[in-house]
Design a protein around this nucleic acid. Structure first.
Lengths: 157, 157
DNA sequence: TTTGATGCAAATGGTTTGCATCGGG
DNA sequence: CCCGATGCAAACCATTTGCATCAAA
């Protein structure tokens, strides 16, 4: 992990690499699979016994997104969530992974497929729109829920 | 328009078809191309000289979404926006149209392409996830902006 | 007439900001 | 040392909610 932190630190250019900013990065590295919200980062940091103010977390998230280290997401639960932008996978475009959002249990799965490059090409040619990034969510029922209580309102973990 | 209103009214089942609810529907029909927010609906209604409270607008939007007449969207500008779900185009799945969001001028264009059915199939087979709907946004530069001030911060109309 | 719908104002909750203080480079 | 970063509390702002009143069916 230390290695990744160092790699990310190098992105900081003229911004200071403070313990708080480092802490936020660590939390993301330790919770790769999750999509953390500001509040959750705040909780997790105090669980770790670390000091950081909520306002600082918000400011840090904004910065990290600006630096391209984080991507902001919205899953419709009233708060912004973030995830680490994969720095590994050198070449491969990094914006290509999508979310499967279960309407029953609220779980969020990830897909790596990328049949979207083709669609992007069509859109670029047909509409003259230069695509920089995309954001794709699928709503439906995950393997665990598709058989049981199909339908009904979600619970939102 | 009267015809469409009537068609929509029939969706109301045991919910009352009040003048306020009718008003909101009218506003959407009169602004097909836009993605209206609660506040914008409020503005437009007073411009029309109609009476409706903001709280009522929020409650109406919630209901209309529940009835499947509206779809809630999030374009990252801090407020929810809605658009009419196409009731025409009988058969054709209705969730298949996507947004091109210009990072320069904030304009939102729509695409009708639907090469996503194929991707959906892959996802369903590979992940056992039953897809009900999807939501796709492309970020980039629209024809007007792609040549001029490429890059820089957005202005958000 | 009945019960759901409305409107107002107050409450909520995520996010932002002003400002004095702190500390990374 | 200096200026950007932090923390706290207050401010913001979209959305929600309690409650008395109103009106659609």
């Amino acid at each position: 992990m230390e290695k990744k932190i160092t790699a990310m630190k190098s992105q900081f250019k003229d911004h200071r690499f403070t313990p708080q900013r480092r802490l936020v990065l660590e939390l993301f590295l330790e919770n790769r699979e999750q999509h953390l919200s500001a509040e959750e980062l705040y909780q997790k940091s105090r669980e770790k016994g670390e000091e950081i103010g909520l306002a600082t977390i918000y400011r840090t998230l904004e910065l990290l997104e600006e630096l391209g280290l984080l991507q902001k997401m919205n899953f419709g639960d009233g708060r912004s969530r973030y995830e680490l932008v994969a720095m590994d996978k050198p070449d491969r475009h990094q914006h290509h992974h999508h979310h499967l959002i279960c309407l029953e249990c609220g779980r969020i799965l990830e897909v790596e497929e990328d049949l979207l490059t083709r669609l992007e090409k069509v859109v670029e040619e047909k509409h003259g729109f230069q695509i920089v990034n995309h954001y794709l969510q699928f709503f439906g029922y995950c393997p665990d829920c598709r058989d049981t209580g199909k339908g009904r309102k979600k619970k939102r973990a």
